[in-house]
Write a protein that binds this DNA or RNA. Structure first.
Length: 221
DNA sequence: CGTTCTGAGTCGTTACATCA
DNA sequence: ATGATGTAACGACTCAGAAC
């Protein structure tokens, strides 16, 4: 910020810090630069930079942090809830109502927006994180289920293989007779895959429709 | 004494106005 | 119309005092 702007702020500070409003501050720091109407260039002192910069104002620490009163913060919060952006008119009105420098109101809103944004990011992050965790769990569950189903499929194929071998043996050893149903019975069941595959069709699982699909695929191929 | 909260300073960027 | 310059507002980063 350039010096001209700072000068404007000095004027504004004089305008917005009338002495009768001093009681509004819970932590009004004595040497603020406007004490007892003294117009001072030190209203907005530059803070000390890092250690070793310069010690010009070490003696009279003019720049101290002023904590806003609960009432001021409440009103600012209300205003922030209504609208995060702060137009010039609203800033001036708020500043006048609260007995603050418009610059302070602007700074408060800037900080509030920044911290609101940080909090929002944190919230979004934790939401995404928990969503990701449940997705990973679901993936594990599905993989386990897939393994089980593959195992069942393997068993079913083995069974089919056994039955088709039996069928081959039967057709080569005995002549066809339309009246010899007795030996057909077990085969009949086998032909439709019912022999020994109950566990495939009646798997106790909430997703057993999946097993059904697998079974369909087995016979479509 | 370390941590957290928060008011405020600094810097870079952007939008806009003014002027030569 | 156009480029240079000044100004204001803002976000991001940071510091530092206060509170816990």
């Amino acid at each position: 910020m350039n010096p001209q702007v700072d000068d404007q702020m000095l004027l504004l500070s004089d305008q917005y810090y009338p002495s009768h409003q001093a009681q509004l501050y819970t932590h009004f720091v004595p040497e603020q630069g406007v004490v007892a109407g003294v117009k001072s260039k030190a209203v907005r002192r530059r803070r000390k930079k890092k250690k070793g910069d310069d010690d010009e104002e070490e003696g009279n620490m003019m720049m101290r942090k002023r904590k806003l009163s609960e009432e001021q913060v409440n009103m600012l919060e209300k205003s922030f809830e209504n609208e995060h952006k702060l137009e010039s008119e609203r800033k001036d009105r708020l500043a006048a109502e609260l007995g603050l420098d418009p610059r302070q109101v602007a700074v408060w809103f800037q900080n509030r927006r920044a911290r609101w944004k940080t909090k929002k990011l944190e919230d979004e992050y934790s939401k995404l994180k928990s969503h990701q965790e449940t997705t990973v769990l679901e993936k594990c569950r599905l993989e386990t289920e897939l393994l089980k189903l593959k195992e069942q499929l393997h068993e079913a194929e083995k069974e089919i293989q056994k039955l088709s071998e039996r069928l081959d043996g039967f057709s080569s050893n005995s002549p066809r007779s339309s009246f010899s149903l007795e030996p057909m019975e077990p085969l009949f069941l086998g032909e439709f895959g019912m022999d020994g595959l109950e566990n495939v069709l009646y798997v106790q699982d909430q997703n057993n429709y999946v097993n059904g699909l697998e079974w369909d695929n087995l016979y479509i191929i």
